[in-house]
Design a protein around this nucleic acid. Sequence first.
DNA 1: CATTCTATTGACCTTAACGTAAAAGTCAAT
DNA 2: ATTGACTTTTACGTTAAGGTCAATAGAATG
Lengths: 138, 138
Amino acid sequence: MGSKSIGKTDVEKLYTITELTREFGISTRTLRFYEDEGLVHPERRGRTRLFRHSDRRIIQNILRGRRIGFTIAEIREIILAYKDPPGESGQLTLMLRRVTEKRDELKQKRKDIEDTITELDLIEEQCLTRLAEIGVGT
Amino acid sequence: MGSKSIGKTDVEKLYTITELTREFGISTRTLRFYEDEGLVHPERRGRTRLFRHSDRRIIQNILRGRRIGFTIAEIREIILAYKDPPGESGQLTLMLRRVTEKRDELKQKRKDIEDTITELDLIEEQCLTRLAEIGVGT
DNA sequence: CATTCTATTGACCTTAACGTAAAAGTCAAT
DNA sequence: ATTGACTTTTACGTTAAGGTCAATAGAATG
């Protein structure tokens, strides 16, 4: 009801494709690809695409998923699950299993990352030690 | 000097390729690929490959790197950095920069993972709520 | 020795996620 | 009306990390 309500009468800011490519450091090809994949749904003014805030948020989600190694299919699955969780009981329990699966996978990944960070720390230490030796020797 | 010393006289256990594929759930093609890439260096008895403990450990490292989305090139880089850190000062500071880069990348990834886990928790909650509603309704 | 596994090499094949190039349309500014 | 920046569609190209298949070679076991 206030000035922050999002109704049909609001003038929502629309983004052009290059605005978004610049903001996120991706190519136009990538955004068109995501549209082909049904992940974003920009309006059209003539033929040109105009992206909404919701698309922008979805893109952020896609990029996050991409960073942690999810495929487009997996990312789509999560986005859909978030948007409209299934109504039928069987589908719901199935989704619960999938969620548990994914979460376990992510926890393993987190552990792998932490172990690798530790290893990098070790490498760093070795480098610093060597550098100190060399520094002393010269 | 004790029975745990690893000297030339030790009888080290050697692994055949299928032993390793079974242990790690990967294919022989994958192991040969890793050899072509210079990551493992099995001995040969005739033409058959025989892997040592060190190779086995390297394979574990490769798989860990793979899980967190590293490319073979990146994995190789880390393995080499661990095996023989460079001796020259310039190379050392360069490597220190690369280490910092990688670590930052991993920290971002860890954050992404944690955010995604939170999102999965939310989806799970929604599913459980819906299930409870349905359960009540029937 | 014959059979039966298992391994090896070499070659081409596959998939995801875009890259890249071509040809053409849009629109504001000069 | 031309330039220049941006956009579109179409379509073939690329890369990493193996998959798959065929032909061959050892190794082991009855």
